[in-house]
Design a binder for these strands. Structure first.
Lengths: 218, 218
DNA sequence: CTTACATCGACCATCCTGGTCTAATTTTAG
DNA sequence: CTAAAATTAGACCAGGATGGTCGATGTAAG
């Protein structure tokens, strides 16, 4: 914090959102270097001068977006992960669901962050770097802290580590295909329901194939 | 064809390659619009004028690269796919291996084509469009013509279509991780061997889990 | 009225772009 | 040998986009 100016925060939230959304979209589509402040103000419907009145430079605007995105990820993705689920498959599936939910609620932030992580175009101030580091560590712990997953359910003739990896690829693959399909057009609710059902069926197959016979699920 | 000029083809192949590689790299990294002819000539170590002497414009240079890349894909990827393999898993694994081989032999072309398919920045002349279409059709047939795969090996309590899909995601996931890991530094031969062995072990697990007990492989 | 803040968009210096052109050099031909 | 033809390099160009500035104007408060 410290980069966002008071003047911006005093704006009515409608205008704030318009600006933030426009900026997220532009940076998310083009990356830092290619992003154009001209296009941002045009999309946001404000005068050029205002952008540099609220934020002092392109860089500070970008920093504000990073900060805001990290907050959102922490609040609406990481904090929502239930780490009491002990079944590996259910756990991975749960994470995938929460992630997908974040993706549908905040598509702009998602796109912005993907670009951010892929291309790391702009430097960050130390405070932000630390925050990023903190969130990454926390998230990594939440998502990949699988060391203590219950291996006893796996059938004995496969290495549980590898089986775990296989399951992860599968779920990632499904999620990836899903996101791919809905990059442009938003999914209809019923279509979405159908897809979740399908997802469950895939999970069922995974359990059938990787777990011992006669587990406790119906 | 028809866009590449004779003057360029008369060059000694060293110089040709330098130019082609530089151009593939630039377009592959930046995409059509962002790619800079200045950087290309600099990287290739030739004068600015020459690029427009060999090819007449940025666009024709690009077309030449597309053409050349399609030829390579046809010759060194698609034509090398052995479609006599009837075991689903072995077949998918085989394709993955051939693809990976192409990727390691022609990293520039691979990157160029990914960017090409993702962003389709520049228009193509009709002849090239047709060629692209032809290669795509042929490739799609080779890679996804799975309608007649042998379902009898799958265990009876899972839907073979879904099982097939699961296997595909798995293999894609492994290949994806592999490529990710070697984006910058090239793999050592022994490291590569280790990874192929690991790949085979994953395949074995897949067979163990998705096929009926007591298949014919050792 | 004055003062302070808010808003706009014309404007600016700068940079980079694809492409051209001249002038020099090398190669080929006669 | 000369002369014509092919090849090379890079200074140069007009055009367009960039991040950022600034004076003009509006608005609200005291």
């Amino acid at each position: 914090m410290g980069y966002a100016l008071k003047s911006f925060e005093k704006l009515d939230s409608d205008k704030q959102n318009r600006i933030i959304r426009a900026a997220l979209r532009e940076f998310g589509k083009q990356g830092y270097d290619r992003a154009s402040t001209n296009r941002i103000v045009q999309e946001a419907g404000i005068g050029k001068g205002m952008l540099f009145y609220y934020f002092n430079s392109k860089k500070e605007l970008y920093w504000h977006l990073v900060d805001l995105s990290l907050e959102a990820v922490q609040r609406e993705f990481l904090d929502k992960i239930d780490d009491s689920i002990d079944d590996v498959i259910d756990r991975l599936a749960h994470i995938s669901r929460v992630k997908w939910q974040f993706f549908t609620v905040h598509p702009e932030i998602s796109r912005f962050l993907t670009h951010f992580f892929l291309t790391d175009g702009a430097e960050l101030p130390d405070a932000l770097k630390e925050k990023l580091d903190r969130v990454m560590r926390y998230g990594f712990g939440k998502v990949y802290e699988n060391k203590r997953f219950d291996r006893s359910r796996f059938r004995e003739d496969v290495d549980p580590e590898r089986a775990h990896q296989l399951i992860e690829w599968t779920i990632k693959g499904y999620a990836g295909d899903m996101m791919e399909r809905f990059k442009e057009k938003k999914p209809e609710p019923e279509e979405l329901q159908r897809l979740w059902d399908e997802f469950d069926q895939y999970l069922h197959i995974l359990k059938t194939c990787f777990y011992k016979r006669g587990g406790e699920e119906g």
